[in-house]
Amino acid sequence: MEYVLRTFALSKKYKNHYALNQASMNIQKGDIYGFVGENGSGKTTIIRLITGLISATSGCYELFGVSNNSPDILKARRKVGAIVETPSIYQNMSARDNLKMQCDIIGIKDENKIKEALFDVGLIELYDNPKKVGNFSLGMRQRLGIAMALLGEPEFLILDEPMNGLDPAGIVEVRELIIKLNREKNITFLISSHILTELALVATKYGIISKGHIVREISAEELRHEFRKSTVIEVNDPYKLSQILPSFVSFKDISLLPTGAKIFGDIDLNLIFEAVIKAGITIISVNCNEANIEDFYLSIAGGIHHD
């Protein structure tokens, strides 16, 4: 298994407060890692740590298999692109000049890279536009930030709240761009976001962080399995119900309850109701749960808050 990032009990302490406490996370090559957590949970702290902006109080991490304590970490960082909180751009320069500056930092001489990056983020019309970035909307700055992060042809792209300030069309564009880059260029992503439903549309793996702790890491597949859509049917005769259900749903999708049954996945309720009524069973209640990443997050982080 090839890991792009592994952190080992990473901690960051500010005076008497731990912004990050023994956080361990694992991102494999090709993952789109959705990083979820409440405000101040430590998402940006861990991003700042792995991008080298701040140093850890304790613990360590590996980027492309290179330890942060090795001098080679600087080489490993060349494979990383990132937007931390807000895009880092010169407000007094045009989009093209900003991209040129980034090209100079990286050492890219090919002007076409600038065009490509602007095209990728849907800002190609800015190539010849002398408008200063300071006059751009937040959404445009976000996209320009992504374009700058893409210039170095990174293998690992870290986006801290990339949907912030984007209009609905912009959100769709960024989402599609993430999926395209992941599929076509095999770029691994670490995306922190508050818009969990949006994250759910792209993420292949999730990391839940709360109060500086990584509470859980789960793949999208596991999450789908654990938090599938479910329907709870309560009846007067649970035994009879348990005999009828296998005709409509497979055994693995049925969980028997003392008062009825919980059925996972999409089912045709009309067919089941027909059979139940035919068998003389009385239905007491039916509850459908559309479980999603938000439910999952709340079930974990919410529980922690109440501790």
Binding site: T51, G81, S88, I89, I105
Partner: peptide, 18 residues
């Protein structure tokens, strides 16, 4: 100081400049 106020110093660190 604009490198700090615009946050552009981060671009240099993130890309692996010492």
């Amino acid at each position: 100081s604009k490198d700090f106020s615009f946050g552009t110093i981060r671009n240099k660190i993130i890309i692996g400049k010492s």
